[in-house]
């Protein structure tokens, strides 16, 4: 966002601040408030800290009219624009600007130590936020500079998907179920049960709807597609039921025997033998 479009927010307001002319700083040490005429401030007024974008402004204003007396733009803290004195926590040196590229160092002081603390923390918080913003924008810029992975299709590019024999089942969902199978048709066949090849008449009946599932060769030959196909395979009510599965050596023979005793589930055994 362009700087001139950014909002100015107020970080801190202190209604009572003293301003001092200060002697030039000795080059080998920091400022000392004890060198100032602390009991004779050169100006008193209100202090506000505002921020616009990343820059903070310390504004000295008339207590009554609010007219701007002087302001100090601060681009970093701690930095040259705001310095603490070496001998007190209540006094600071700020660099005010006249707007034409000239600046002057003046001393400011708070009678209340808490006000000085607030002043300090307001600036610290603002520049902590600036640091985070800078890091975030740097990271997002690095992300933008990485080559992008383009997984889109090129102009006119096509791909061909081959998904088993799913096309054979198209339209099968709306096919009415044979009555009498009830909820039992949702159950998958027991794994590795004895397999009987369906008689020709049965496979003719279902060839209009689905391709007959592959016959497992062994106990490990079954797969998930067999189970799924069970959902739509019709119970061959209209066809002649195949011979019942031999129960002499079939682990699951009891099921066909038991279900055949229930009248309306008579076609059920023929449903199992397809697998």
């Amino acid at each position: 966002m362009a700087a001139e479009l950014e909002y100015e927010s107020v970080l801190c307001v202190k209604p009572d601040v003293s301003v001092y002319r200060i002697p030039p700083r000795a080059s080998n040490r920091g400022y000392r408030a004890s060198d100032w005429k602390l009991d004779q401030p050169d100006w008193t007024g209100r202090l506000r800290i505002t921020s616009k974008g990343k820059i903070a402004y310390i504004k000295l204003e008339d207590k009554v009219s609010g007219e701007l007396f002087a302001q100090a733009p601060v681009e970093q803290y701690p930095g040259i624009a705001v310095e603490t004195v070496t001998d007190s926590s209540r006094y600071f040196v700020i660099r005010i600007q006249d707007g034409t590229g000239r600046s002057a160092f003046i001393g400011i002081g708070f009678t209340d130590r808490g006000d000085a603390f607030d002043f300090n923390v307001s600036l610290q918080d603002h520049f902590k936020w600036v640091k985070q913003e800078t890091e975030i924008s740097k990271e997002s810029q690095e992300m933008d500079n990485r080559p992008k992975l383009d997984l889109g299709f090129k102009e006119g590019q096509t791909i061909k998907l081959s998904i088993g024999n799913i096309t054979a089942k198209k339209g099968g969902a709306s096919k009415p179920r044979a009555s009498g199978t009830g909820g039992l048709s949702l159950l998958p066949p027991p794994p590795g049960g004895k397999v009987t090849i369906p008689p020709p008449s049965s496979s003719v009946a279902i060839s209009n709807h689905v391709t007959p599932p592959p016959i497992p060769k062994s106990n490990h030959g079954g797969n998930d597609s067999d189970i799924l196909l069970d959902l739509d395979s019709p119970a061959p009510v209209s066809t002649s039921a195949p011979a019942p599965v031999s129960t002499s050596n079939d682990l699951w023979g009891d099921f066909s025997t038991a279900s055949s005793s229930v009248p309306n589930q008579a076609p059920q055994p023929s449903n199992w033998v397809q697998f």
Binding site: R21, R102, S103
Partner: peptide, 16 residues
């Protein structure tokens, strides 16, 4: 700004 009335003699060109 009014600060110049009081502190005008303190202002110097801001070093870059």
């Amino acid at each position: 700004p009014p600060a110049l009335d009081i502190f005008g003699d303190l202002f110097e060109s801001t070093p870059e």
